[in-house]
């Protein structure tokens, strides 16, 4: 009883705070100072049409590096938790008959989904999208593969190698920035290229492709571990 009263009290205080914030909130009519700087200079300094991309990859590149590290850490801890015993590893999952429609559709769609994911992260500096979205789309393709054939063996070594190599390459491209440009993760390692074309914005397409491969491999790894955990009982 006391617990319920306390919960109600906490929610009420929080709701009162939110109500006050809501009442004093005024819709903004102009950008804040930092955002104004980004909006004015991003196209000139970074050369990317998508300002969100130039913030994520260049201005706040360290945040992205840290975030990719956090995702790697969660994937590792999940692998550790869902580790199977030796005898479970070789069992196959008993499942109902997968629908013929799903199997045929997955054969046609999975390559197209992978291609779309690659398109999304290569064009991250021009259109909405980028490494995280492209990686998630690739992982969706892996999920469709697993749905169509629950006993599929996804090669763990390939996933681990893609993940490690793209993670190291991300840092190495960042280090190139120190040598050839202003600092770590600076994208002006070569010419910026013509604004609005695919090969522009210096290192941004390269870095975002590595981020996309890494995120896709990590999420695929998590999905694969959950699928395998269905074997033990």
């Amino acid at each position: 009883m006391l617990k319920n009263t306390l919960i109600a009290l906490v929610i009420a205080v929080l709701a009162y705070m939110f109500y006050n914030v809501y009442n004093t909130y005024e819709t903004r009519t102009s950008l804040s100072g930092v955002a104004e700087y980004y909006a004015t200079n991003a196209a000139k300094e970074v050369g990317a049409a998508n300002i969100v991309t130039s913030i994520v990859v260049t201005y706040r590149g360290f945040d992205t590096l840290g975030e990719v590290t956090i995702l790697f850490l969660t994937a590792s801890i999940i692998s550790f938790f869902l580790k199977l015993k030796e005898e479970d590893e070789n069992k196959s999952i008993k499942h109902g008959i997968t629908s013929e429609l799903l199997i045929t559709a997955s054969q046609v769609l999975v390559p197209i989904i992978f291609l779309f994911g690659i398109y999304v992260f290569i064009n991250g500096h021009l259109t909405p999208g980028g490494g995280f979205q492209g990686g998630a789309i690739i992982a969706t393709g892996v999920a469709l593969m697993i749905m169509a054939n629950p006993n599929i063996r996804i090669n763990n070594h390939v996933i681990h190698w893609v993940e490690s190599i793209s993670g190291v390459a991300f840092v190495i491209v960042g280090l190139f920035g120190i040598v050839l440009a202003g600092g770590f993760l600076d994208n002006r390692i070569s010419g910026l290229g013509e604004f609005g074309t695919l090969f522009s914005a210096g290192a941004i397409p390269i870095i975002y492709s590595f981020i996309g491969l890494k995120v896709g491999a990590e999420i695929s790894n998590i999905l694969n571990k959950y699928q395998k955990s269905q074997k033990e009982l």
């Binding site: 991309t53 980028g130 995280f132 979205q133 998630a136 969706t140 999920a143 999420i219």
Partner: peptide
């Protein structure tokens, strides 16, 4: 950008 991420990751 956020909409794409949320649709693929959050809800899928």
């Amino acid at each position: 950008d956020v909409a794409m991420t949320e649709a693929a990751i959050g809800s899928g």
